[in-house]
Amino acid sequence: MPSDITFYLLAALTLAGAVAAMSLRNIVHCVLCAAGAFAGLAGIYLQLNAEFVGVAQLLVYVGAVAILLVFTILLTHGADVKLGSALISSGWKTGLAISALVLVCLVVPVLTSPGLRHEAASGVVAPMMQKIGEQLMGQCVLPLETTGLLLTAALLGAVVIAMNDKTAAGPKTGVPPNHEAGKEPGLR
């Protein structure tokens, strides 16, 4: 019973965070609620005995992705919303209808499927770290190395794309001379 209550509390936190993230007006509040949703999900993973995934979710999503989002908001002055500008794009009725359709398509098979289990299998063994390590370096070594390559490429690509290149076309699109909050001088 305690695990059920934990699950419902965490699920409520996650859903509330997600809905708030998509519907608030102030974009920094949206990012903070999204970080709360990620943390709620991390709690759910921990409750499902997936320790490594839960901790990695905290480390990566709350500790890195949320901070990246916040930095981008501040670098693009996204927090200064012009008064009177619409929050939601035109054609929102279609979008809403399609997302409702997606929800229905995902939920109906779940609720009507006869084969879903009701109780968790008891085959989860305690020293899971060892097994994850063995799988990563054994069976999944190709995805591991490819992910390493992908992350390196993403890192270099992100730096190159976001870099302020003062080329001949520079002054036309020059950045305004206020404080470049967060821009690391060492990157120039």
């Binding site: 320790e51 901790v55 990695a56 905290l58 709350v62 901070i67």
Partner: peptide, 11 residues
């Protein structure tokens, strides 16, 4: 777990 918790406090 320790490192994940540490990174959560940066926010």
């Amino acid at each position: 777990f320790f490192f994940a918790i540490g990174s959560a406090s940066e926010l």
